[in-house]
Design a protein around this nucleic acid. Structure first.
Lengths: 304, 304
DNA sequence: GCGCCTCATTTGTCCTGGACAAAATAAACT
DNA sequence: AGTTTATTTTGTCCAGGACAAATGAGGCGC
């Protein structure tokens, strides 16, 4: 599971693409240009990546997501990369130790039963909004970081997502279908797969009496438009994970802004659009989950 | 939305890969071998696929999922492909007309608000188990068929999945976490993405007092084993969509059977394993949702 | 007839090494 | 400082060859 012995397992280029999200072409061109990765070859001349190189590629990927550029980091040692990651992470506010680490451990150890129980208990104790803001969001960030460090694998990430989805969807469903305003349409752009951002936003809004409808992930612009206009929505909410290319997010949002009638607001949240407010006229950039509530207040004030 | 004018939009090879699920390498090699697709080129010599060719590629992809082989179909005309698709679909039993068609129309027309409301209402009226067996399952089949025919697109499919997920997860969550037997672990193999099968199974079992835990999709065998053994489960339930390669399902199931202690049962359901019982000794093939309940009775009888 | 083994195709993925456009940065300018 | 223009950097695309894994056909024993 955690590949204790680095030389034990090896990866084909397709497997590395799946694991790191780096395209095959990119892996080959890095090898040509920077000399890394340096896979061995099998009997047929095909690349075989040892798992320590895959681990290093994951670190590099994570740094790229934080805005670094390949030339500067592909040649660096594991130690240098590790310290770069540390300096990337700490600024986001010191790791809040304690309870969350406990949950992260449950995820990493595949303690599925205990994880489900612990999350359920936290939800009961904190209520939906605090549960989202204080437990789910930090845990999601911690899992994301651990993922990039290679300490967490696909199945752990899925286990986590699945349990949180269960709780959030069921808690959201428990609020009677409200007819309240604003009516918010939630979704993501076609290249974005992550659904938790949407669910967290919905979980913040529904208890405030807003009526939300989620289209799920990967909705093309044209469909967002027709759903928003046809459904009489006041606001369209988009979520972007940290890995989503910022440029694409900005272009897409501006295009959507042009597509929608002016009276429909656009809210955008998530790592890829943070701090991009000034490049997004006519769009409300939601910095974090608490800011969602602020945006809601603003809307209600403005439309009163 | 539906690209009314075929010549209006054009696609890069990367876009076609996203839309059809056919790898870039595959698209290029088909062009070389079969003369189709035959994209035009832009100023830079890069392939530009007109949207009617992309549509045809989608049809081909669907036929491949049904077990046809490229050489036979890549050269065929759109009409021939269309009739092949028809003959693939009809044998599965005449389309059950009536109420479900109404819901399918809502999906196809992107009537997201009405769809959510109609589903919620059906759940209220029928109760969870009947809702799953009589509404969700037929609708899922109808959406699957429409998808095959190309009458339904990615966003429609996502809209449908999302709304059903919301309802099922919230209904399942409403049942207090039971400590009852059997304890069922639900998941899919790594190549299987579809989650609805798992949710439907869970929705059938939970009202019967079974205690279910879903790991979500895409769990490697080794992780299934450790979760099942470590969590003290009685049964592992696997779901396979119709598109999942039958051979892979059988091999994987037998391997899992060998991996798990004998006292843990394996249930397998979904299109890919239907009618494969005799090739799967030691595994309970669940034919349909009603059969899930039969399997449950058997287990309780045997373990009493 | 049915299951199992072997052989011939079919088919998807991988390879090399070159090219170029889009993005990001640095430099120059109002 | 803010905007325009050069100059890297970087990811994706192309061609055409190669090969192994998957699939189907043919032969053989039951």
């Amino acid at each position: 599971m955690n590949a204790p012995n680095p030389s034990e397992t090896a990866f084909s280029i397709a497997a590395v693409e799946r694991d790191t999200g780096l395209a095959k072409d990119t892996l080959r061109v890095w090898e040509r240009r920077y000399g890394f990765p340096a896979p061995t070859r099998d009997a047929n001349g095909e690349r075989v990546y040892p798992s320590d190189q895959v681990e290093k590629l994951r670190m590099i990927r994570r740094l790229l997501d934080h805005g670094r550029r390949p030339a500067r980091i592909v040649g660096a040692s594991v130690e240098e990369l590790s310290s770069m990651l540390d300096s990337c992470l700490c600024p986001e506010g010191g790791t809040p130790a304690g309870r969350d680490d406990g949950l992260l451990q449950l995820v990493r150890l595949h303690r599925s039963v205990e994880l489900a129980a612990a999350l359920r208990q936290a939800l009961m104790k904190q209520g939906l909004q605090r549960f989202v803001a204080e437990t789910v969001a930090p845990l999601a960030a911690a899992v994301g970081e651990a993922w990039m460090r290679g300490e967490v694998d696909v199945p752990e990430e899925h286990l986590f997502t699945e349990q949180v989805q269960n709780l959030l969807r069921s808690a959201i469903g428990a609020h009677a279908a409200s007819e309240g305003r604003p009516r918010v349409l939630l979704t993501t752009f076609p290249e974005e797969e992550h659904v938790l951002g949407l669910l967290m936003a919905e979980a913040m809004l529904v208890p405030e009496g807003a009526s939300c409808l989620s289209l799920g992930t990967r909705t093309p612009l044209a469909d967002i438009r027709s759903a928003a206009v046809g459904g009489g929505f006041d606001i369209v909410g988009l979520s972007f994970s940290i890995a989503y290319p910022a440029r694409q997010a900005i272009d897409g949002l501006l295009e959507l802004r042009a597509l929608l009638p002016e009276e429909i607001g656009i809210w955008a949240g998530g790592g890829a659009v943070r701090d991009k407010q000034k490049r997004l006229p006519g769009i409300r950039v939601v910095g974090d989950l608490a800011d969602t509530l602020a945006a809601l207040q603003e809307w209600r004030k403005a439309s009163a």
